[in-house]
Design a protein around this nucleic acid. Structure first.
Length: 291
DNA sequence: CACTTGACCTGTCCGC
DNA sequence: TGCGGACAGGTCAAGT
């Protein structure tokens, strides 16, 4: 669920909220959410100061002044939510998310020297927060394999098409979800961009013209950019660093809109299954690939 | 070697 | 009302 725009939104929020703060304590109740050597945590995390926050694909990277970085993947239900000292003592309505934290989905809690807190919540426990020397981060196996950032200006149609050649016998949805082809696209934005480019998700990459792929990349860039503006998509439980939801889902054309009319042609949007994923299409705009 | 399926998890929703 | 099962989807490992 948290895909590129959601992780980018969290990154921007954390940049405003926790840069410059010093970590005094970390606690966790589910070791798989924080699989790190205690000795290194004691030495390089406790007492460290946060100097910057980056995003690569769907991964958050929190750089510390000890030469180490926290690397976090939110997977499906991960959240980073910050609670400043102004939110203690009933300053928050009891029905707000921040007012209720920590809760039963809180896996890791970071405490800063000013008593403010950063919670890593993760209902389904798929996400994790790991700890690496900052210089090693680009060499982490899965980070090294990532494809380009789709919003980089240097990521052109030519690069996109070249990278897709490796997946020429795959269907286009599988190719878009493959993080080594292009980084950061998940189920929501794959469906949205394929609708925008009028491509059926089962179409084999080799059967799509270069012109269509160029159009698809244009749509990917437009959609991701708009979603970042809207603070990402809250499908179920995504929230930003302030515990607030994103509104892009209101602008989505097909995702979670099965049974509604296509905004382009009026045909009823259907939900089907492609590559084991729930997939939303307009059956008229996105014609099934020829077999 | 490419492709598919299962595992990791919890909460929600649907049918009986 | 309770219960079983399907489903939600990011990623990697294991199986075909």
């Amino acid at each position: 669920m948290p895909e590129l725009p959601e992780v980018e939104t969290v990154k921007r929020g954390l940049n405003k909220l926790i840069v410059g703060k010093t970590i005094i304590c970390v606690s966790f109740d589910w070791p798989k959410s924080f699989p790190n050597e205690q000795s290194k945590v004691d030495k390089f995390l406790i007492g460290s100061k946060i100097i910057s926050i980056e995003r690569r694909a769907k991964v958050l990277i929190v750089n510390l002044n000890t030469g180490y970085s926290l690397v976090a993947h939110l997977k499906m239900t991960g959240q980073f939510v910050y609670r400043g000292v102004e939110n203690f003592g009933g300053g928050h309505p009891s029905d707000s998310l921040i007012g209720r934290l920590p809760d039963k989905s809180t896996r890791v809690t970071f405490e800063f020297t000013d008593s403010s807190l950063l919670f890593f919540n993760d209902q389904r426990k798929f996400g994790w927060v790991r700890f690496f020397p900052t210089v090693e981060v680009p060499n982490i196996d899965f980070i090294q394999k990532l494809g380009p950032e789709p919003l980089d200006e240097s990521f052109t149609a030519k690069t996109f098409i070249d990278r897709l050649q490796r997946k020429s016998n795959s269907n286009i949805k599988v190719a878009l979800l493959d993080q080594t082809v292009v980084a950061g696209i998940g189920n929501i934005y794959a469906d949205e961009s394929l609708w925008a480019a009028k491509i059926h998700p089962k179409t084999l990459v080799k059967n799509i013209t270069k012109a269509q792929l160029g159009l698809l990349l244009d749509e990917i860039k437009k959609i991701l950019t708009l979603s970042i503006e809207k603070g990402g998509s809250t499908d179920r439980n995504y929230v930003n660093a302030e515990g607030k939801k994103g509104s892009y889902i209101d602008f989505a054309k097909v995702f979670r809109r099965e049974g509604q009319s296509c905004q382009r042609c009026g045909t009823t949007i259907i939900k089907t299954r492609v590559a084991g994923r729930g997939t939303h299409i307009c059956p008229k705009c996105q014609r099934e690939a020829v077999k």
